[in-house]
Design a protein around this nucleic acid. Structure first.
Lengths: 203, 203
DNA sequence: CACGATACGGAACGCTGTTCCGAAACGCAA
DNA sequence: TTGCGTTTCGGAACAGCGTTCCGTATCGTG
C-alpha cells in the first residue's frame, strides 16, 4: 500500500530484475485493476502490460490463469466464508442468515464481471478456481442450509450444499451484463424452493 | 430495351451455377453428429472436415457459429415451444404443465453438451443463438407461468418469464459434466419458489 | 572482479473463430 | 462445341487467445 510503484514507462529503467518479491505484488494489484475494468476474462497480456512485466514473469508467479484469479479474490472469498458462522449467530433465524449469506455471495459474484462464468468446472481437469471456491464455501453453505432446514422442519434434503452453491453461482452468470435479468431475485426464490416442505412440489 | 444484356439483374434468377446445394444438408448432418460427440463447442474446422468441405463453405452457409447451432437445433426448439400449449391443455393443473415443460427444456439443454453454456448473451452483440431461444421460448414460458400463478393465486410477479427462463438455462450449465450436480432437481425447486406466495420469502 | 544462479521479457507455439481470394465447376448462349 | 459469366468451393491467411520456452540482464556471493 505504501509503495504502489505505478511507473510504467518502458524507457530508461534499470530496475529490479533479479528480485523475487516485487513482481508478485505488482501483478496482483494490476490483475485486480484490470479485472475491474475489463472483467475477469481480460487477456493475460493486458494484465502483464499493466504490471509492467512480461507474460513469462506472470506465468512463473501464477502457473495458470485460474491461480491468478484465486489469488486476487482469495481474501474476499475468505471474508465471505467467515461471514457464514457470524450471520448464523447474529441473525434472528437461520433462514435469515442463509438468505443474507447467499445475497452476499451473489453480490460478490455479480460485481466481479465474468467471475461466475469463469467458475465452471468445465470438464475433465479440476480447475483451481472451481476447487477453491467449492472447498472453502460448500461447508459454510452446508451448515447454514442445515440450520435453516432444521428450523423449517424439512427433514428430507432435496439438494445438497454443493448443488445449491453451484446453482446459485450459475444463476449469477451474465447477471451484470443483462439488465433484464435479476439474479438476486431468482436466487432468493431458489432458496425458498430449497426450504419449502417436500410435499410442496407435488401438484 | 432489347439489349443482348451482358448484365443481368439478379432479381429472380438465383439458380445455382456451381455445385448443387447439397453442402448445406451435409453441413447440418455433420454438425449434428459432431455436436453429439464433441459437444456444441467443437471447433468449426472439425465440423467442416466431417462434412468434407472447407471452412469457407461452412461460413457461406452459416455466417456465424451461432447460426449453425440454431439451424441444427431449430426443430428441437420448435418442438419444445409447441409442447407448451399442448401440456397446458392436457395437464390436470397449470403447475403440472409448467413443471413438465420445464423438465423438457432442461433435458434438452443437458443432453446437448455445452448448449446451455453457449446460450449466454455474453456481452454487447445480441447473439443469434440467444435471440432465437429467447424469442421462441419466452412467450411459451410466460403463458405457462401466468397460468400456474393464477392457479396458485399469487398475484405479484416476483420474476418475469425472461428471467425465469434464463435462470433455468443457467442452472443447466455444466450439468452433464458434473455428476454431483443435479440441475433438474434445482430447477424444480426454483419453480417452487417462483410459484410460492410472496410472503413466503420473509422470515 | 568473476562466476553461477535466477528472474526477466517477449518471441514462438498451438489453438480458436472468421475473412479472403484464387481456382474449379456449372448453365447458358453463340 | 466452345467460350464466358456466375457461383461455389477449399484452404491459406488474419487476429486473438492461453501457455511454453529460451536468450539475456541482473543479483548475490566467493
Amino acid at each position: 500500500m505504501s509503495h504502489p510503484g505505478p511507473e510504467q514507462q518502458p524507457a530508461a529503467r534499470a530496475r529490479p530484475a533479479g528480485r523475487p518479491r516485487r513482481s508478485q505484488e505488482d501483478l496482483l494489484q494490476a490483475a485486480a485493476a484490470v479485472f475491474v475494468t475489463s472483467g475477469v476474462d481480460a487477456p493475460v497480456r493486458e494484465i502483464a502490460a499493466k504490471a509492467g512485466v512480461g507474460v513469462g514473469t506472470l506465468y512463473r508467479h501464477f502457473p495458470t490463469r485460474a491461480e491468478l484469479v484465486v489469488a486476487v479474490y482469495r481474501h474476499q472469498v475468505e471474508a465471505c466464508a467467515e461471514a457464514g458462522p457470524r450471520l448464523l449467530a447474529e441473525s434472528p433465524t437461520p433462514e435469515v442468515a442463509l438468505r443474507a449469506w447467499v445475497a452476499l455471495f451473489v453480490e460478490f459474484l455479480v460485481t466481479k464481471h465474468g467471475l461466475a462464468g469463469a467458475l465452471h468446472a468445465d470438464d475433465a481437469g479440476p480447475d483451481a478456481l472451481h476447487r477453491y471456491f467449492v472447498d472453502r464455501l460448500v461447508p459454510v453453505c452446508g451448515s447454514l442450509l442445515d440450520a435453516a432446514r432444521a428450523e423449517r422442519g424439512a427433514s428430507a434434503s432435496p439438494a445438497d450444499a454443493y448443488t445449491v452453491l453451484k446453482g446459485v453461482g450459475n444463476l449469477c452468470i451474465g447477471a451484470a451484463a443483462d439488465p433484464r435479468y435479476d439474479a438476486d431475485e431468482l436466487v432468493q426464490l431458489l432458496i425458498s424452493g430449497v426450504l419449502a416442505p417436500v410435499g410442496d412440489r407435488d401438484a
